[in-house]
């Protein structure tokens, strides 16, 4: 199969993630969109790995997973702390900081 298709797919996923971050209002959903973006990158990396015939891309995907995991840990902690305060994870409710 043409590897370019995977690139298109990953670009699509990345775009969905980006749009999700920009459009969605729930912090958790925003966060999940970011994770989607990271996974889209993973797909890109693996595809390029295949195209180049080297395994570097796959190894990088590992690193990305690690980082994503660390991000999850920290992000969930932050979002949970806000959630516990406000009983809501909507980004719109988080609006004390303004001009």
């Amino acid at each position: 199969m043409n590897p370019a298709n995977y690139l298109i797919l990953s670009a699509l996923l990345f775009t969905i993630g980006t749009v999700g971050v920009l459009v969605r209002r729930n912090a958790i959903v925003v966060f999940m969109s970011v994770e989607l973006m990271l996974n889209a990158v993973n797909l890109t990396l693996v595809t390029f790995s295949r195209i180049h015939g080297t395994l570097d891309g796959q190894i990088m995907a590992f690193f990305v997973m690690v980082v994503a995991a660390a991000e999850v840990v920290i992000g969930l902690a932050i979002i949970l702390s806000i959630f516990r305060t406000r009983r809501s994870a909507s980004v719109d409710d988080v609006n004390l900081l303004k001009y």
Partner: peptide, 16 residues
């Protein structure tokens, strides 16, 4: 807390 969350979400976004 709000600062932390905004920083986090946008930071993660940009690092993606």
């Amino acid at each position: 807390q709000e600062a932390a969350m905004k920083y986090f979400l946008l930071g993660a976004f940009s690092s993606a």
